[in-house]
Amino acid sequence: MSSKDLILGRIRAARAAYDGSIPRDYRRSFPPADLNLLVDRLVDYKAEVHRTSDISGTIKMILGAGVVVIPPGLPRGWLPPDISVLPDESLPADRIAAADGVVTAAAVAVAETGTIVLDGSPDQGRRIISLLPDLHICVLRPEQVVASVPEAVARLDPTRPLTWISGPSATSDIELNRVEGVHGPRNLHVILLEAL
């Protein structure tokens, strides 16, 4: 007997059954996302937020003279002209890690939890590029912001690799207090575009 058959047989022999329904009385419809709440929650978890329509000027201000990795589909117009850009065309990990920062777009953001989600689309790129540099600049359009977790789950495609990010890398492992800055980017800047 294979281990699969053995395990499935044991489970059948356990005779667990559930004939109830799933009570979904929790909140499932929400008002439009409150951008101020998103900002408040991002800042609370130590992300820096810039509300602006000047993307390139803001990136220049954050990055100064550094080298920035970008995913292949990032709109080039977002980048300041006088900056060193490293487009990710299968860059080796060492080169990504040595860059000063990375600029990506996002798929969805959740106001209530201060979360941005990346889904590997061309303007967000491979998971590795938003992980190794110590600075992550994420450009967010207001229509990408939803109020709640259920709305974000509904918008996302689970067949894509998803990364949910809520503030910079942190740990609660020392006396159960949140301390920012372990393995992921220690600096998270969110550029929240003004509604047109």
């Binding site: 939890t113 201060g114 998971r127 990364t163 949910w164 990010i165 809520s166 503030g167 942190a170 992921g184």
Partner: peptide
């Protein structure tokens, strides 16, 4: 409210 990182 949400942990810093969730990977799927």
């Amino acid at each position: 409210r949400m942990n810093p990182y969730t990977s799927m």
